[in-house]
Amino acid sequence: MAPSNITKVSEFFLLGFSEEPALQPLIFGLFISMYLVTVFGNLLIILIVISDPHLHTPMYFFLSNLSFIDVCFTSTTIPKMLQNIWKESKTITYEGCIIQMHFFILFAGLDDFLLTVMAYDRFVAICNPLYYTVIMNPQLCVILVLVSWVISVLDSLIQTFMLSRLSFCRDVLIPHYFCELKQLVQLASSDNRLNEMVMYFAAGLLGGGPFAGIFYSYCKIASSICGISSVQGKYKAFSTCVSHLSVVSLFYGTCLGVYLSSAATHSSHSSTIASVMYTVVTPMLNPFIYSLRNKDIKRALQAFFRKAALKRPMVVG
């Protein structure tokens, strides 16, 4: 193949879930429903945390940031997929694919780091309750979020730069519904060994590091809870971690499930379906997990809707 045919790629083709025309309306309705639930659910959490002074604490500060990241994370992939189904098209421009991959890596990394920061917050609250307000001061909370942003931005910029060095043939078919880094590296026509090294090193460092931090935090939390004498005290301490632990289990469980299933079956289609769990389902379920198992969020929601009902104009007949 001539070099001009390799380097001058202008668009990619996203194969999505199925090429059956009869299934496209069903896929469109399912994903637009999940996307709307994700957006409105997470925005409601942010609004509740901002409007209720009782929720102006480090835990809910991190929760509102996590909700914002989840909205952005889902918005990097689902709108383009819905647009392609609506227009009966599978194309995405080269520039659009690079931008989508950049923001996907950015928000996925932020999700990971914020879950780690929230685990540290629970560690301080349970293991050092007397010094909690001193340690988890507003300045430290902002610094932790900013550091998460800086590391995630640097990682996404490095991965984007490394990918932009690769050459692609024309008519590249991506067996996914978004531009996933691993798929793009494997489909490159030029030498991709350096890209694979950087990709796996970043995944091990920025994925394994936060997971190790979360695991260590919960080991110390479990040790502290076991040292509490009263059953009521143990239950109260553990209940503050249930929501976060559920989200962590869902996020890491689905991520590991994607890569383990793809490694076991060697099927890109099964990997595409499994990736829906951590790209769509997990961000959608986060607001429900935190609202259903959290008394503070329930109380704030009731107060918010009660206040909204009182502000509603009355029509006198």
Rank of each mutant, 00 (worst) to 15 (best):
78 I>G: 02
55 L>S: 06
62 F>A: 00
83 Q>S: 13
136 M>K: 04
136 M>G: 08
52 D>A: 08
139 Q>T: 07
96 G>Y: 04
130 L>R: 14
83 Q>N: 09
73 F>P: 07
61 F>R: 04
107 F>N: 02
87 K>G: 10
97 C>M: 10
134 V>W: 12
54 H>I: 03
99 I>R: 14
49 V>M: 04
54 H>D: 08
110 L>W: 00
48 I>C: 05
130 L>C: 13
88 E>Y: 11
88 E>M: 12
128 N>P: 00
52 D>C: 08
119 A>E: 04
125 A>Q: 07
48 I>V: 15
60 Y>N: 12
79 P>V: 14
64 S>M: 08
96 G>E: 05
117 V>L: 11
75 S>Q: 11
111 D>P: 00
115 L>V: 10
71 V>T: 03
107 F>H: 11
112 D>G: 06
111 D>L: 07
49 V>Y: 03
64 S>R: 08
56 H>W: 01
50 I>C: 05
121 D>I: 05
49 V>H: 00
51 S>D: 03
68 F>N: 02
125 A>F: 06
124 V>P: 03
67 S>D: 02
60 Y>V: 11
69 I>L: 01
76 T>P: 12
77 T>S: 06
100 Q>I: 13
52 D>P: 02
51 S>V: 05
139 Q>E: 04
71 V>Q: 01
95 E>S: 15
80 K>F: 11
119 A>D: 09
92 I>H: 02
109 G>F: 02
75 S>K: 08
62 F>S: 05
112 D>S: 09
102 H>L: 15
58 P>K: 04
111 D>E: 15
54 H>C: 06
107 F>D: 03
74 T>P: 03
138 P>N: 14
60 Y>T: 09
120 Y>W: 09
82 L>V: 06
92 I>V: 15
100 Q>K: 14
87 K>D: 12
70 D>Q: 05
76 T>Q: 10
93 T>W: 07
80 K>S: 12
85 I>P: 02
120 Y>M: 13
113 F>M: 13
78 I>S: 04
129 P>V: 15
64 S>E: 01
115 L>E: 07
91 T>I: 09
131 Y>N: 15
65 N>T: 00
55 L>P: 07
117 V>T: 06
108 A>Y: 02
136 M>N: 12
118 M>P: 01
66 L>V: 05
106 L>H: 11
50 I>M: 05
103 F>Q: 08
113 F>P: 04
73 F>K: 01
116 T>A: 13
96 G>M: 03
78 I>Y: 01
104 F>S: 10
50 I>T: 02
85 I>S: 01
106 L>Y: 08
123 F>E: 13
65 N>H: 06
108 A>N: 09
97 C>W: 03
81 M>N: 03
